[in-house]
Design a binder for these strands. Structure first.
Length: 555
RNA sequence: CGGGGCGUAGCGCAGUUUGGUAGCGCACACGGUUCGGGACCGUGGGGUCGAAGGUUCAAAUCCUUUCGCCCCGACCA
């Protein structure tokens, strides 16, 4: 296509409210414009990229036997009420009423509607398995839209759903999707990890996320290079690094006005790892004392899985319940339930002495206090892998896809059932699988850029080739450019030709910004010798090629 | 929802402290020169200063309310 006929509004300067690299470049290079918080317009280049990504998605979905369908975005409340999510989900769901006053909502995902369809159409084990997918808009009233297209209130998602007669079938579809996702992300040129994840409100027991490493990401992932263990830190297990213990005898130490681990650590000249951090929380009106090592953080979600919903205790509550000011509390002789991080099982520690301005040194777990042992700390860089003992590293990632084993969470309430070989009625076993195309695009930019702009992976670039006729007033330049343009198009190559009457510098700058992987540069001097330059956007290396050879070299 | 920041031309910003005719750069239009890494000279168009109310002879500037956007946190199919 011709640059002069396309809306490609490049910006010399980045709008002030863009922070993430992908956001800045998508705006500057004219891929998207923002309508409001979390609402984006995709301009021609941006839409072409999404089309490319969606084409890959479709191919790989079809390859595993998934059938494309399309579901409404506007949903009646009843279906969501039947699964309970109408009430479970809060402000994140857009709700409205139709003209008759009927409750409706905008779809944030499609488990309910897909299951509704399955309940109508699937009757026999002979109808199974089924796998349905769509590439459809989702709406979520996000608490905090951010980072350009990475977290928006309206976005397109490829979501697929599997329906099976038994667990083996689900496992098969789950693995087929995992395999397809690997191919998809690889084809889109992304670095990514498949990690264990927390199913959250989706329900179900098993889920994995596909994570593209990037500093713009919102998630953190723990990775083991040795054994391949990888998990979202929301549930990642780890073993804090070992420390050498001193054979302290139990004694109380005067620590005037030293309350935090850091303060006492500095005062006693002992590393934080020798301390036990005691945190009082209130779970359903029952106090629970949580213990983690001084150099670790308490992981709220892990604790929630053991004691349920809870909140931190207030200062006055600490005094009331434990009889000592926060800052000097320790696990010894406490009547409350104590949950301690497993790594504290061995060793000799320092903690509050349960006495104002005193800490106790030489605390031996098991002897000086007892507790229930669980992994309740947040995995951090340098911790050891719980599987193999190698060092874990923590990386920030963008979640680009996820897969869930749903089981019968949706099929039971929506009565999606079938008759098995014996004529007995059973709920369909389901899985759901999502991918965010705009996140793939953003992640690709985050992972592939330089100071001048985007460097698209070939597979998802808006065009294959950009032709730069540097001087549009030179008739030979124009003539050869037109010929190359047509010849390449005839070969099925997607070409963008910068036919604007702009100075060479402008064309170079815009071409680098836009990031089409290969540039064909037509300069007058080279053309007089029958040569053009073919330049690689990533390496910036250019080679001179005879005009007649271009089509052959490119294709 | 809590904390912080910002709303002045399409974009980036100054002006607000100390009230007194709304500015700069880029972009845009026209003329000329230039033409392989965001050219130069000249001329010109473009603003309810986010909105509403108030104080004042006079408000971008002071006061009140409100809306929007960004960042950190909480939250998160």
């Amino acid at each position: 296509m011709r640059f002069s006929k396309l809306l490609i509004p490049t910006l010399r300067e980045a709008p002030a409210d863009a922070e993430a690299i992908s956001h800045v470049f998508m705006l500057r290079a004219g891929y998207v414009r923002q309508l409001a918080a979390g609402l984006y317009i995709f301009l021609p280049l941006g839409w072409r990229v999404l089309d490319k990504i969606n084409a890959v998605l479709k191919e790989e979905m079809e390859a595993i036997g998934s059938q494309e369908i399309s579901m409404p975005i506007l949903h009646p409340a009843e279906v969501w009420q039947q699964t309970g999510r109408w009430d479970v989900i809060g402000d994140e769901m857009f709700r409205l009423k139709d003209r008759t006053g009927r409750d409706m909502c905008l779809g944030m995902t499609h488990e309910e509607i897909m299951t509704w369809l399955a309940s109508r159409e699937i009757r026999s084990y002979r109808d199974l398995p089924q796998v349905w997918y769509q590439i459809q808009t989702k709406l979520r009233d996000e608490a905090r839209p951010k980072s350009g297209v990475l977290r928006t209130r309206e976005f397109i998602m490829k979501d697929s759903y599997s329906f099976d007669a038994n667990e083996e079938g689900l496992e098969k579809n789950y693995q087929l999707h995992a395999g397809a996702y690997h191919k998809i992300f690889k084809r889109c040129g992304l670095k990514f990890y498949q990690v264990e994840s927390d199913p959250g409100m989706m329900g179900g027991a098993v889920s994995h996320e596909f994570m593209a490493p990037s500093p713009a990401g919102e998630d953190e992932v723990a990775l083991c290079n040795k054994c391949g263990y990888s998990a979202n830190v929301e549930l990642a297990l780890s073993v804090p690094s070992e420390i050498k213990f001193e054979d302290w005898l139990y004694e109380e130490v005067h620590t005037p006005d030293k309350r935090t681990v850091q303060e006492v650590s500095n005062f006693l000249k002992l590393k934080p790892a020798y301390f036990i951090k005691s945190i009082l929380v209130i779970a359903e009106n029952t106090p629970v004392l949580a213990l983690v090592r001084g150099d670790q953080e308490l992981h709220e979600k892990k604790l929630s899985k053991i004691i349920g919903a809870h909140r931190p205790a207030q200062k006055t509550e600490v005094k009331e319940i434990l009889g000592v000011e926060a800052g000097f509390i320790g696990p010894m002789n406490q009547k409350v339930r104590i949950i301690a991080d497993s790594c504290l099982k061995e060793g000799i520690y320092v903690s509050g002495a349960n006495k104002q301005h005193y800490h106790a040194k030489g605390i031996r777990p098991g002897k000086n206090f007892t507790a229930e042992w669980h992994d309740i700390h947040l995995a951090k860089n340098g911790d050891k892998c719980s599987k193999c003992g190698a060092e874990l590293k923590i990386e920030k990632c963008i979640e680009i896809g996820n897969i869930f084993k749903l089981g019968t969470k949706y099929s039971v309430p929506l009565k999606a059932v079938f008759l098995d070989e014996n004529g007995s009625e059973k709920p369909v076993i389901m899985g759901s699988y999502g991918i965010g195309p705009a996140r793939i695009a953003a992640a690709a930019i985050e992972q592939n850029n330089d100071k001048d702009g985007i460097i698209w992976p070939k597979s998802i670039a808006p065009f294959d080739i950009e032709i730069l006729p540097l001087n549009m007033k030179d008739s030979m330049t124009v003539e050869i450019a037109e010929k190359l343009y047509n010849d390449l198009k005839e070969r099925g190559i997607e070409v963008l030709m910068d036919d604007r009457d702009e100075r060479a510098g402008v064309k170079f700058k815009d071409a680098d910004l836009i990031g089409i992987p290969t540039q064909i540069i037509l300069g007058e001097k080279n053309l007089k010798e029958g040569l053009v330059e073919i330049k690689d956007r990533r390496t910036k290396e250019a080679k001179k090629v005879r005009v007649e050879e271009v089509v052959k070299v490119i294709s």
